[in-house]
């Protein structure tokens, strides 16, 4: 990929209130939804779990997560959005973003990552399966304005690193 086989570097950067607008611009371009303030507050609160991806110093994609506390105190990660600008797809940006979050889960002993996918979105399901995600649940009539209105819950249970003893 890339021009003439040149290696183009993709780098990640955190989201802060100084560059929050970059994430907003991306979301406006990528999703037919306007996210509310809670989304951005969650994203900022998730710290390292929300990242912008830069291709040649251009912000082209993002992953935004929310950290959820389960009963019993364990933490799981909900991926709110993951997206890459159309012209920059197929360059490994999405993979880099998702791997970053999975690595982080591993390091922080977080066992569960999940998200929602519309049932007919086969490309997405294939993409996540590549990373070891599985369909764990189907929710009917999840969406109100698009067809099909059903979605899958897609989950990955992250294997914890062997504790060396």
């Amino acid at each position: 990929m890339g021009a003439g086989g040149r290696e183009v570097s993709i780098s990640l950067d955190g989201v802060r209130d100084k560059n929050l607008m970059q994430l907003k611009k991306l979301n406006t371009a990528l999703f037919p939804v306007r996210y509310n303030d809670k989304y951005y507050a969650d994203a900022l609160a998730s710290g390292e779990f929300t990242k912008l991806a830069y291709y040649c110093d251009i912000c082209v994609g993002s992953i935004a997560c929310r950290l959820e506390k389960k009963e019993g105190g364990a933490v799981r990660v909900y991926i709110m959005t993951l997206g890459v600008l159309a012209p920059y797809r197929g360059l490994g940006v999405g993979t880099k973003l998702l791997n970053h979050v999975l690595d982080l889960c591993m390091k922080q002993n977080i066992g569960e990552v999940y998200l929602h996918v519309q049932t007919n979105n086969e490309d997405a399901i294939k993409f996540y399966k590549k990373f070891g995600f599985e369909i764990t649940e189907t929710i009917h009539n999840y969406y109100t304005n698009i067809t099909p209105p059903d979605c899958y819950v897609v989950t990955k249970f992250v294997a914890q690193p062997q504790t060396k003893k």
């Binding site: 406006t28 037919p32 939804v33 809670k38 959005t81 399901i125 999840y142 304005n145």
Partner: peptide, 26 residues
Amino acid sequence: SPNESSLPLSSNGNVEKLEGLKDLVI
């Protein structure tokens, strides 16, 4: 969002439900 009128957002919960759409772009 330009498509806002087609996707009225009533509450916080609804917004999340729609987040499933993100995967369309992967």
